[in-house]
């Protein structure tokens, strides 16, 4: 190539550059890019603001509350009567209701969820899985208020036929319904963790003559242990925060819940009950919904953070 030709190429390239990307265009584009970068960052940062807002609102109102009620009474009193003349604020009552429904829910969802995730990840054929997983997603999409209706008007009368002393409002049926509700979440996370266990481990087990069941119990579950535990915790956190089922079917009487056949208020049902009433917004009784909310938030936060850490752990292993 001659020198003349070479200079022609560079000239053409220079012209081309001017046509496609002039200085002004590049500058404008850089400015737009920066502005958009900042906007995108703000959108992401909003999520931090939401958490900050939650903590701020709950703490602010709770501090107002604890100026008038001692924390010791709050934690040790065994009665919850905020709207009475001599109000008492024993959060144990509401927490016991919440724990009761949560435990019943877990008693349903943990065995069923574990069996189902093993079945889906180790036993079911591809076709079966393709059909079952969407149906579980549909189950997760059912509005909670519909589950509440189902618990109160369908399941409770059925249960009453073979448990004669079951009250119309009780903790047993909402607990079972909560178990059904959290099942899809548990299966989704647990099955995800089991499928993350590499096939080479399964093949090794099969080569040693393990059956599918033995492989599942002795190889896959130990391998996916942190993920499966995270699934239980996430389910637990959902069960604790579940509101409409208990607000509809568990009753509103705040008392220490020992008998699942009777009704009792949970933290969430209590918040709904007070929100529906017409208490003045600055009264002590009204502040209690924020204190109850703070209790609930702290409970779910602990479960969520442990679950987050556990899931991260199993992702790192494989």
């Amino acid at each position: 190539m001659t020198t003349a030709e070479l200079s022609g190429v560079s000239e053409r390239r220079a012209n081309y550059g001017r046509l496609v990307a002039s200085e002004a265009f590049l500058r404008r584009r850089a400015i737009t890019g920066n502005v958009i970068g900042v906007l995108l960052f703000l959108a992401a940062a909003l999520s931090v603001l939401i958490t900050a807002g939650i903590v701020f609102v709950l703490l602010q109102e709770s501090i107002l509350f604890f100026r008038q009620v001692s924390i010791l009474d709050f934690l040790t009193d065994t009665e919850w009567t905020p709207v009475f003349e001599n109000p008492r604020f024993g959060i144990i009552t509401l927490v016991s209701g919440t724990l009761m429904t949560t435990l019943i829910g877990l008693a349903v969802a943990v065995p069923a969820g574990t069996i189902l995730s093993i079945y889906l990840s180790e036993f079911a054929r591809h076709r079966t899985r393709e059909i079952i997983k969407p149906i579980l997603e549909l189950l997760a999409g059912v509005p909670t208020v519909a589950f509440g209706y189902f618990a109160l008007f369908f399941l409770t009368p059925i249960f009453q036929t073979f448990i004669p002393n079951l009250s119309g409002f009780n903790l047993l049926v909402p607990g079972i319904v909560i178990g059904i509700m959290i099942l899809p979440y548990i299966v989704s996370v647990a099955e995800d963790a089991m499928r993350a266990v590499p096939d080479s481990l399964r093949e090794g087990a099969f080569a040693l003559g393990f059956t599918r069941y033995q492989t599942a119990v002795r190889v896959v579950i130990p391998g996916a242990f942190s993920g499966v535990t995270a699934a239980y915790l996430l389910g637990m956190s959902r069960a604790v925060g579940e509101t409409m089922v208990v607000a509809i079917a568990a009753g509103q009487q705040a008392k220490i819940a020992l008998n699942p056949l009777e009704g009792a208020a949970t933290i969430t049902a209590y918040i709904v009950q007070i929100s529906l009433g017409d208490l003045p917004h600055n009264s002590l009784a009204y502040l209690t919904i924020f204190v109850a909310g703070l209790t609930l938030f702290l409970m779910t936060l602990v479960f969520n953070l442990i679950a987050f850490w556990l899931r991260k752990k199993y992702r790192e292993i494989y």
Binding site: A45, T243, I271, G293
Partner: peptide, 22 residues
């Protein structure tokens, strides 16, 4: 931000109601 988004997904919906109320 990432931990936060994960955690927000697990916050009970009624807590969002209290946030909005406050």
């Amino acid at each position: 931000i990432e931990i936060n988004v994960t955690n927000l997904a697990g916050v009970p919906s009624i807590i969002y109601g209290l946030l909005a109320l406050g």
